[in-house]
Simulated scan of single mutants.
Amino acid sequence: MSQRSELLTHWLSEVLNTSDFRLKPASEDASFRSYHRLFLQEKTYIVMDAPPPQEDCTPFVQVTNTLLACDINVPMIHHMNLQQGFLLLDDFGNDLYLDKLSSFSVKQLYSDAIHALVRMQSSAEVEKLPVYDDSLLRREMQLFTEWLLKKHLNIELSNEQNKSMDLLSDLLVGNALEQPQSFVHRDFHSRNLMVTKLKNPGVIDYQDAVYGPVSYDLVSLLKDCYIEWPRKEIDVWLEFYLDLLEQNGTEIDRNKFRRWFDLMGVQRHLKASGIFARLSHRDGKHGFLNDIPRTLSYIVALKADYEELLPLCSIIEESVLPEFKVFV
C-alpha cells in the first residue's frame, strides 16, 4: 500500500469511525485526481483523492455549494479534508451519459441536460468564479501546438502557419469575449453527466468552472469529444436550447449565436486535442488518443462555412489525421 493510500485509509477510518469498509477504483479522470467507490454496510460513497499540490479541492467545494443553491443535482459532500485533498461524496452510480446514450434515449437525456444547463446559466452565482479571459483562452489553444503537434507528432509549423494560427487565435478569443457571459461548467459532456432516477442528470467534475462565454457548455455537450451526432440533430438541440433561453427571458440573435457556437467549438476542440496528447505523454493515459480524430473532425466539418478556418483545417487534414490509424 502506498503512502497516499495509507493516508486515505487512515482519514476514512477517522471520519467514519470504523475501518469496516472496502474501496474499489471508480473511474479514470483527465487530471491528477482519482476516484474510489467506498462500500460501507449497505451504502456506497465516492471518495475523491486530489493530491496537493497538483490539485486543490477548494474550488470543487465552492462550486458544489453554488450549484446546490440553484437546484442542480450535484453530489453532497459528507466529509472533507482540504489540506490532504480528500472528499467523501454521494455516489451517483455507474450510469454515465456516454454509456446510456442511444438513438432511443438521446432526446430525453439531452433535454434533461439542456434544462440543467439553462438553470445553471440563469441562476448560478458567478461573482467568485475565475474569469475565462483572453490569457486563459490562448493558453488552452496553445496545448494543441505544444502537445499534439510538437510533442506527439513532432511537427514544427512554418512561419506562415504560425502567423495563420496567431490570426485564428485572435479570432477565436474575440468570438468568446463578445458573447454574453455566464456560469461555465467547462467540461459539460457525456463523461461528466450521470443518469439518475431523480433530478436527472447528476452533474460532476465542475471544479474548473469559470465565468465565460454562454455557448461554451452547449458546444461541449452537443459536439462531444466522446460521442458524435448528426449535424441535423445538433441543430435541433441548439434551437431547443435557444427556446429555453427565451422562455427564461433571454433573447439572442440565432444566426449570431450559431457563429459563436461553431467558433467556440474550435477553441474547445483545439484545447481538448492538446489535452489528450498531454494525458498520454505526461500521465500515461493513452486511451484518450483515440478521441483526437473525432475531436478534430468537428473543426474540419466547418471549413465550408468559415474560410478563416482553412489554414488550420489544412494542418489537421494533411499533417494530423493521417497519423491516426483509427478515425472514429
Rank of each mutant, 00 (worst) to 15 (best):
G265M: 11
S105V: 09
K163R: 01
D243S: 13
K223H: 03
S164T: 03
V173I: 14
F261W: 09
K325Y: 11
F288L: 11
I315E: 08
E140N: 06
L218S: 06
F288P: 01
L129A: 05
S164H: 01
D305V: 03
A277N: 04
Y226R: 13
L244V: 11
S103D: 15
P201G: 15
E156K: 01
V214L: 11
V126K: 08
D305C: 07
D95R: 15
I315R: 06
T295M: 11
N17A: 07
L221Q: 03
F144K: 07
Q84N: 05
L238G: 00
S190I: 07
L310F: 04
G274Y: 06
L16N: 00
V47C: 10
V118Y: 03
I114D: 05
V203S: 06
E156N: 08
P75M: 02
A116W: 01
N17L: 11
L167M: 04
I72R: 10
P25Y: 09
N73Y: 09
E42D: 15
S34Y: 08
N65D: 07
Q83N: 12
F104V: 15
T9W: 13
R191P: 05
P25V: 03
R268Y: 03
N65S: 12
D224I: 08
N159V: 12
L82T: 13
D99F: 00
L263C: 10
N17T: 05
M76R: 02
G287V: 06
L87T: 06
E156H: 07
F188D: 02
M165L: 15
K107D: 07
P322Q: 14
L289S: 03
R119K: 08
F104Y: 14
L302F: 06
L177H: 14
L198K: 00
R278S: 08
H78F: 14
V184G: 12
L221F: 02
F183S: 04
A116M: 00
D205G: 12
V118N: 07
G174A: 10
G93V: 10
Q84V: 04
H269F: 02
F144W: 02
K43S: 05
S280M: 08
L222T: 05
L148E: 12
R138S: 13
M141I: 09
M80A: 11
L96T: 07
P180L: 01
Q179N: 11
L242Y: 02
